[in-house]
Design a protein around this nucleic acid. Structure first.
Lengths: 338, 338
DNA sequence: CGCTTTCGATGAAACGATTTAATGCGTGAC
DNA sequence: GTCACGCATTAAATCGTTTCATCGAAAGCG
């Protein structure tokens, strides 16, 4: 490597004939420095092509200027939108977002928490999969606040931003029941994912007021298109009499998978034979084979609100434990109405 | 804050009655330390809950253990998959990925490059939007190699991993022509995005051998569903005689938008009235209103290969300028065949 | 003309880990 | 009994920035 040794504040100071302290001041509070000196230093900076070393800065500061975000699945458009909302809000405040993908796996989730801990993140946003309360408490003790996204029950006094998933489940269930469906299958992922659990609870709640309503629960390994298709295939393979007349999928990814299994492979008509409701209202829901009725969540807003709260706790020592809950909204499309 | 001051190697050393150097050795090369000492130190570490400060480590090392990845749009499943492939490969090597979203904007792209430069990234992967060659050259001079993803022409001697987009365009074009289409509209985004340019070039190349083939070019502001829908609406609003009989969209997002405009709003039949080909073959393509014929790219493989090359350059000083080009593959579905 | 402010700039001391050259110590060879 | 050697450990230097106490000079005031 012909790379010459990196240029530091020391070099800049030498070139501009000032002390390193002054260079630092020019960088961080130029108003405290005489205009002529500022100009001289800045000239030296650009002449030498000086770039501030963030590691040194962080070491001194004891804290990073980044926020960690751990989501269940980056490939889910709901989470990409959430991440985008978070990123935009963070950037306004001069922070950046480090995105981690737990992929619904505890080891990966835990590995990212380790990483964020080593990096002394200014704060952590997490859509938890495993039981991370202890980890988050430890982080908080070390001065890194955490905010739970997409989880309404504020465990261990953490702030949270979420959508009322039980209400969402009720919305979906009631809609299906209102349109005359009685045998509803819930197609979900791991039940220990809180979202899955709550949406199912909402569905059951809606069904409890309708005497002849039956609910069947099918759980896959993950909330993905593939798993949706697998469970859809299972349903399609049944004799007609044993099929449900409606399906509520835990998210749109699964719903799209189910749709593929029913309509494209199983030649079952949606909604005529089976009605279908998804969750999240991702952009692709309206463009599906049969446009999907879905429970909409304001993904970007969740992300930006969570960052807002997190920064408030990180910068202003705001008390944690705040809990923002958005209300979901049912978007009716062809998959449930003729 | 009741937060007690952070525990450092010094505290661990004190507790284990060894020097800080030994603690560092236990952390980084335990085999150099007597087993009994290792045990004692590790015991102290867990007793005190010591977490290594990455900033200090990096400062000393002069280099981060992270790779930066800048993509045009995280919400595009193609890029999420690419990012996932990159992340997996990086993790195997003990590196992490910092994901940046340029959103097809030069300022944001540039801001991420600044950030990565300040962080002394071990390497940078970028799917470039603006003209970033100068920036990348500067990074390289400072010891941070860069690999271009999704861009085949290796500018300024950088390595690159991409798919032959011209070939992809030819594939799409030839398929449409083979199925009897003659008036083909290309629906794309900013033509200065290389992918858009090359895919169009491929289409034109395919058309050049068919005398009565006509190509019309419609360019939107971004490669998104929304823009696709807007351009689709434009086409749908035309009198029938002035409509094309086929559309090649620059990516699946646009194709899905076009599809929504044609089928759901414009009641134009696909493929009967107009055939449609997309690009990327994202997971949602097969589940679209009309399952989409698309040109498939191995997104995850592109990501992992790029990381592989990048790490090779970063760690082993491998010579840059390597260029890996994957061949695209046409996946035919209902949007082009009855 | 002295005395106090004010302003700008300085220099040294952190921050927390890694790395090096040096040290102590016991062992085996002669 | 001395010397050399290998091994485990240590002490000190280092990375590049920020911060804080300090200092000098110029300016304001009576």
């Amino acid at each position: 490597m012909a790379t010459s040794r990196a240029v530091s504040v020391k070099d800049v100071a030498g070139r501009a004939r000032v002390s390193v302290g002054t260079v630092s001041n020019v960088l961080n509070r130029p108003e405290k420095v005489a205009p002529a000196t500022v100009a001289r230093v800045q000239h030296a900076i650009s002449e030498l092509g000086f770039i501030r070393n963030d590691a040194a800065r962080q070491l001194r500061a004891g804290k990073s200027r980044a926020l960690g975000l751990i989501v269940l699945d980056v490939r889910n458009p709901f989470f990409s939108s959430l991440a985008l909302g978070a990123e935009d809000r963070a950037r306004e405040a001069g922070y950046s977002i480090i995105l981690g993908n737990s992929d619904e796996k505890v080891e990966r989730e835990s590995a990212y928490l380790d990483l964020f801990e080593e990096q002394r993140m200014a704060g952590v946003l997490i859509s938890p999969f495993g039981d991370v309360d202890d980890r988050l408490v430890r982080l908080r003790e070390r001065g890194t606040p955490a905010v739970l996204v997409d989880r309404s029950t504020a465990s261990a006094g953490f702030s949270s931003v979420a959508v009322d998933d039980v209400a969402g489940g009720v919305l979906a269930g009631r809609h299906l029941l209102d349109t005359g469906r009685r045998r509803i299958a819930f197609v979900g992922g791991p039940i220990d994912i809180r979202q899955v659990h709550d949406r199912l609870t909402g569905l059951q709640e809606a069904a409890s007021s309708v005497p002849d309503a039956e609910i069947e629960v099918l759980l896959g390994d993950s909330l993905s298109i593939i798993e949706g298709r697998r469970l859809g295939d299972e349903l399609a393979a049944r004799p007609v009499a044993q099929r449900p007349d409606a399906i509520f999928a835990a998210n749109d990814l699964m719903a799209i998978g189910v749709l593929q299994a029913l309509v494209m492979l199983g030649s079952i008509r949606v909604p005529d034979d089976i009605a279908l409701v998804g969750y999240d209202d991702i952009e692709f829901a309206s463009g599906a084979v049969v446009p999907l009725t879905s429970v909409r969540q304001p993904a970007g807003l969740i992300g930006s609100t969570a960052v807002e709260i997190l920064l408030d706790e990180a910068l202003n020592d705001a008390t944690p434990g705040r809990s923002v809950v958005f209300q979901p909204e049912l978007v009716v499309r062809a998959s449930t109405t003729a």
